[in-house]
């Protein structure tokens, strides 16, 4: 049995989802000869630490009841720098302006020779090359499937399953909130403002929805895909971005009468990174509804491959984190 000492840095919805999945998949992981031992769980107020393995169920209960997992006043960065472990699961909130704590955590993990699995887009959008360089320098593994499309596999699909294919372009719906809003506007013939309010009430849109509806989130994911799969050195500034705030119910209805739905589509190729509302034929593989994400990968040998799945949600995102974790240690 191979023991992997792990920290979970960031214990919001995603971090808790990871803890739940690690608990429910304990036996399965053992069947792969993997004993994933979480030695520290950290949130913004402090940490629970036990080198023999923290009790994840107790952490989840404490977080629910008291709002924090903290038993000791110690930051994620200190945990990464001072505690001996192999893997950092980085699930702190994304910050696309500075990279936030996530960037510092990831760099510290690589400097101390640790592997990183993350769901945090910000640092990858801003400093992809630097992070990859740091990971390479220390021989660390760096996986980030959960940053694009939640549970829907795109990065590993291209890098592993479609290995050997030259990828020409990827097009898709990479933001569930926008997809929900556009789908509901069409169903209810309701205005953007009304459906946005409904989405906020349901927790599908954030209190400040601009990150989603202005296309920023989709653009960040395109940057990650451009860098990770096309070998580009793209940043957010390279993306032409138009959001969905101007879309009217009349436009959606007219499009439908002519056999189209309107979707916020992100497109990446070597030539162009573009986020814009697009007319998608109703029976096209990309015309998925609700909060679903979808991506169509155009490859040289395999032709077009389309995947769809839930783009958000703690357990769905944790699924991508888990598969990254398994793929790192199963292959060793």
């Amino acid at each position: 049995m191979k023991t992997i000492c792990t920290s979970i840095i960031g214990f919001g919805a995603i971090g808790q989802g990871v803890a739940e999945v690690l608990l429910s998949k304990k036996e399965y992981l053992e069947s792969l000869d993997l004993d994933v031992r979480v030695i520290a769980v950290v949130d913004s107020r402090g940490a629970t630490i036990d080198p023999a393995g923290v009790d994840l169920a107790a952490c989840l209960t404490r977080k629910r009841e008291t709002g924090t997992v903290a038993l000791e006043k110690i930051s994620g960065l200190e945990v990464i720098k001072t505690l001996d472990h192999e893997l950092v699961i980085e699930t702190t909130p994304t910050n696309i302006e500075t990279g936030g704590a996530g960037l510092l955590n990831m760099m510290a993990a690589f400097e101390t020779g640790k592997d990183v699995v993350t769901s945090n887009k910000g640092p990858l959008t801003l400093k992809y090359r630097e992070l990859q360089k740091a990971a390479k320098a220390s021989g660390s593994k760096f996986r980030f499937e959960a940053t694009v499309g939640g549970s829907m596999p795109v990065i590993n699909l291209v890098n592993e399953v479609l290995a050997g294919n030259e990828v020409r372009s990827i097009k898709g719906i990479l933001n569930g909130t926008c997809n929900y809003i556009l789908s509901r506007m069409l169903e209810e013939k309701a205005s953007y403002t009304d459906i946005l309010a409904e989405s906020m009430e349901l927790g599908i849109a954030e209190t400040d929805p601009s990150y989603d509806v202005e296309g920023i989130d989709t653009a960040c994911k395109l940057v990650i895909l451009a860098n990770a799969l096309f070998g580009l050195e793209a940043t957010y500034k390279d993306v032409e971005v138009t959001g969905i705030t101007k879309i009217t119910p009349d436009a959606l209805e007219m499009a439908r009468e002519n056999g189209y739905v309107i979707k916020l589509i992100g497109e990446v190729s070597r030539e162009r990174l573009l986020v814009a509302p697009r007319l998608v034929p109703i029976n096209h593989p990309l015309a998925v509804g609700g909060t679903l994400n979808v991506a169509s990968v155009e490859t040289e040998l395999a032709g077009e491959i389309t995947v769809t799945g839930k783009g958000a949600g703690p357990i769905e995102t944790a699924s991508a984190v888990l598969s990254d974790l398994i793929s790192i240690y199963r292959e060793c």
Binding site: K171, K246, I247, A251, Y260, L279, P281
Partner: peptide, 10 residues
């Protein structure tokens, strides 16, 4: 004006 084009058209 916002111009919404069919997918695949630039």
């Amino acid at each position: 004006l916002l111009m919404v084009l069919p997918i695949g058209i630039q």
